[in-house]
Simulated assay, not measured.
Amino acid sequence: MSNANLEVSQQLQQLLLQVADRTKYFLGYPVSKDFDYSELLPFLQFPMNNLGDPFVKSTYQVDSREMEREVVHFFAELFRANPENVWGYVTNGGSEGNLYGLYVARELYPNAMVYFSEDTHYSIQKNVTLLNMEYVIVRSQENGEIDYNDLKEAIRYNRHRPVVVVANIGTTMTEAKDDIPRIKQLVADMAIEKCYVHADAALAGGFAPFVKPRPAFDFVDGCDSISVSGHKFIGSPMPSGVVVVKKENRDRIARKIAYIGSSDATITGSRNGHSPLFLWYAIKKLGVDGFANRAQHSLEVASYTESRLNEIGVKAWRNTNAITVVFPSPAVEVCAKWQLATEKGFSHIICMPNVTKEQIDEFVSDVMATTPQ
């Protein structure tokens, strides 16, 4: 082996050890790591690219479009979309799904005002800036949910313009969920007919359909598009997501492209053909029952985490049926070890399907060991 090749191998081995070690200790981010995609490794030999519309054939055929369509239909059914009026694709993550939903909204209502709460994911403000859409940031309630009274006043001030609302179906820090039927009713009460609601369900979209009572977040509840991440609740080696929209709205922006023999209906041109394959594989292996079991496990561990922290005097809390537990930030070394996201003096643990009660016990022990007596 040449010196150059030896150096590459050593660097890779060092990175592998580092990644494996750090993967053991993260509780602060919504990423599932309990997956095994070894059966799919042979596909990494091929340049799989799902460029263009997954529902339209392309002259480029080294792809996974068939699987991508199945993934879209799986989530469309979970989100109770009209099967006669649904379209979507596998994205690079929730942020791209949010961009797509807002893009569709802008094409429908070019003069619209966009409303979202101060607890909304940072991708929304970035996306409305990219799309050159005017927006109003609305206050949040203490639990992170949008302040409906403030939203009403903001819309009233601009009631001559169409309304676009980004509803959080699980905010970043507290997993608060905005009530879409309440938002729709609020707009209807002001006699505003042109209204578009995009649901950012990056994390909770994977388990909200299995929670009782079911949050009001999907197409039956009044959303026009919805974005969910694939690498969060499901788990994937690379970031991914799914966006589902009404086909009639998507048809307004698609353009036929002769070069690829397909239509340009997505944000990016070339698209990862491996991501849909990973999501398809997970969906096939888990099934609906598997999703429901993962949701139940996460909720049980979240309840356990909240109780354990309160037992040792840490004022932990969570929103109804949330898998995110919020508490005052512990010592810096504890935050660093467990890779906790921290904001305004608070941190959180997100009880993903891979999180165990044993991990929580170890975390609690660390908190106790670093808390002044």
Rank of each mutant, 00 (worst) to 15 (best):
N168V: 07
G144V: 09
M173N: 14
N98G: 14
V86L: 10
Y148N: 11
K126L: 13
P110A: 00
I137D: 01
N98I: 13
E145P: 07
Y135I: 03
V86H: 03
P181D: 12
G170L: 12
L131H: 00
A167P: 12
R159Y: 09
N111Q: 15
T172R: 08
D119G: 07
N149I: 08
V128M: 01
E145H: 08
R159S: 15
R156L: 15
T91L: 08
L99Q: 02
V164A: 07
M173L: 13
Y157A: 14
V163N: 05
Y109C: 06
M133G: 02
E145C: 14
Q141L: 14
Y135S: 05
T120Q: 03
T120H: 02
P110S: 00
A188G: 08
S117E: 05
S117N: 05
N111M: 08
N127E: 04
H160C: 11
L186G: 05
Y148G: 09
G94A: 08
N143Q: 07
T129Y: 00
I124W: 00
L130M: 07
G88V: 04
P162I: 07
I180V: 15
E175L: 11
L186M: 14
Y157G: 07
E134F: 00
E134C: 01
V187T: 06
E96Q: 14
N132K: 01
E175Y: 10
E175P: 09
M133L: 03
R156S: 15
V187L: 14
L108E: 05
S123I: 00
Y89W: 12
Y148E: 13
Y109H: 05
T172K: 10
Y103L: 12
L99P: 01
E134G: 04
I124Q: 01
K184I: 14
V136Q: 11
E96C: 06
Q141Y: 02
S95M: 04
G101A: 03
E145Y: 03
T171A: 12
G97M: 07
R159T: 09
Y100E: 11
S117H: 00
N168S: 15
E107W: 04
E107G: 06
L131V: 01
D119L: 06
F116N: 07
E96D: 14
I155N: 05
N143S: 06
E96R: 06
Y109W: 02
L130H: 02
L130A: 08
N111H: 04
S140C: 12
I183N: 07
A112D: 02
R106W: 02
E175S: 15
N158Q: 14
N149T: 08
V138P: 05
R159L: 13
G144H: 05
L131P: 00
D119A: 07
Y89D: 11
V164I: 15
I146H: 01
